Amino acid sequence: MFNRSKFKPKMASKYLVSKWKSDTKSSISMLDLYDQYREWITDNATGCELELAAFAKKISEVYPDAIIKDGTVRGITPKTPRVFAPPPIKSQLERDVERLLSIFGHFYPNIEYRGFTVRQVLSELRPDEPQITEEQLTDYLEKSELFFQHPEKKYWLREWRG
């Protein structure tokens, strides 16, 4: 029988997840799980006695995705954390161009959506900053997915992403 406290089953489920976290099995022997759960009950919930049928019912309550069949519990192992790809490493030139474009966007708000030329951007370049040529800026804008050139008027616009 379980204590009516909601705290104990939650802590028990956390205990079970931590116990099987490093294991990559797709199923767990129900008796092994039952023995470990009894250990937790002995340590943390004095006065609680468990029966195997009540335990199987509690597993299905705590883990709705778990399937109990033939003495094994499937679907109780936690999902492994998703591995993210490392961020792309940008060259110093790309960082300088992005900084120049952000400064330009700061001085002229929303000009990226109205259109700008390469010369307008380079006019904001101060002498103490790294010097960027028109070809370098044009190459960056052509390779970038964020900017495109107007086909007729030849000024640059920022791609609208709503």
Rank of each mutant, 00 (worst) to 15 (best):
residue 7 F to T: 13
residue 78 P to N: 03
residue 51 E to F: 12
residue 109 P to M: 05
residue 37 Y to A: 03
residue 71 G to W: 03
residue 13 S to M: 10
residue 122 L to E: 07
residue 150 H to P: 04
residue 123 S to G: 04
residue 152 E to C: 10
residue 161 R to Q: 12
residue 52 L to A: 10
residue 92 Q to L: 14
residue 108 Y to M: 04
residue 124 E to G: 07
residue 20 W to S: 02
residue 46 T to Y: 11
residue 77 T to Y: 11
residue 159 E to L: 15
residue 151 P to I: 14
residue 54 A to Y: 05
residue 82 R to P: 01
residue 160 W to H: 09
residue 41 I to Y: 00
residue 148 F to D: 03
residue 100 L to T: 09
residue 35 D to R: 13
residue 92 Q to A: 14
residue 37 Y to E: 00
residue 80 T to N: 02
residue 140 Y to K: 01
residue 140 Y to E: 00
residue 96 D to E: 13
residue 79 K to T: 10
residue 94 E to L: 03
residue 11 M to I: 04
residue 50 L to Y: 06
residue 122 L to R: 06
residue 11 M to R: 09
residue 32 D to T: 15
residue 123 S to I: 04
residue 74 R to M: 06
residue 143 K to D: 10
residue 38 R to C: 11
residue 56 A to C: 14
residue 49 E to G: 09
residue 31 L to N: 15
residue 107 F to P: 00
residue 15 Y to Q: 00
residue 58 K to Q: 14
residue 29 S to Y: 14
residue 116 F to Y: 00
residue 19 K to L: 15
residue 99 R to W: 12
residue 137 L to V: 06
residue 80 T to E: 05
residue 65 D to K: 12
residue 68 I to N: 04
residue 24 T to A: 10
residue 159 E to R: 15
residue 26 S to Y: 11
residue 32 D to G: 06
residue 53 A to Q: 10
residue 117 T to W: 01
residue 26 S to T: 15
residue 146 L to N: 07
residue 161 R to V: 15
residue 93 L to P: 00
residue 24 T to I: 13
residue 82 R to W: 08
residue 146 L to M: 05
